[in-house]
């Protein structure tokens, strides 16, 4: 399970970084989303991967899973969700005002200079 989880986080991060480095706003927005998914999973795993255990210490329970990372993930999800909405609006407004979705606000010329 650890291998699967870690590879998932790694692939999501790699995709996110690649997309963030693109020159158009939409791939950048997608990249930021992928990065936030990756970090949410990463935070979740920082309390160790435990299956079928309650998030509280009880005398009857055979063990417990750390509840704090779950609270951290909730906070991070809310923030990243709000920020994604903001970035989408910003990208759209930029596209409408500048007439291009290039991150520099103007199309590069033939030689690729922007």
């Amino acid at each position: 399970m650890e291998l699967l989880f870690a590879s998932g986080v790694g692939v999501l991060t790699a995709v996110g970084v690649y997309l963030c480095l693109r020159a158009r706003t939409f791939p950048v927005v997608l990249g930021l989303s992928f990065l936030s998914y990756a970090v949410n999973l990463f935070l979740f795993a920082s309390g160790r991967l435990v299956v079928a255990r309650p998030p509280i210490v009880g005398p009857a329970a055979p063990g417990y899973t750390d509840p704090l990372p779950q609270a951290l993930v909730l906070t991070a999800i809310v923030i990243s969700f709000g920020m994604t909405a903001l970035v989408v609006v910003l990208a759209l407004r930029g596209f409408l005002e500048a007439g291009t979705d290039h991150v520099d606000g103007r199309e590069p010329d033939r030689e690729g200079r922007s």
Partner: peptide, 25 residues
Amino acid sequence: ARLVAGFKYVTVNLVASTLFLFAVG
């Protein structure tokens, strides 16, 4: 001009925030 610069500012800071969370984790 401000919208285009704003997009970059927000993106850089969002990536930094993501790194912050990785560090915290």
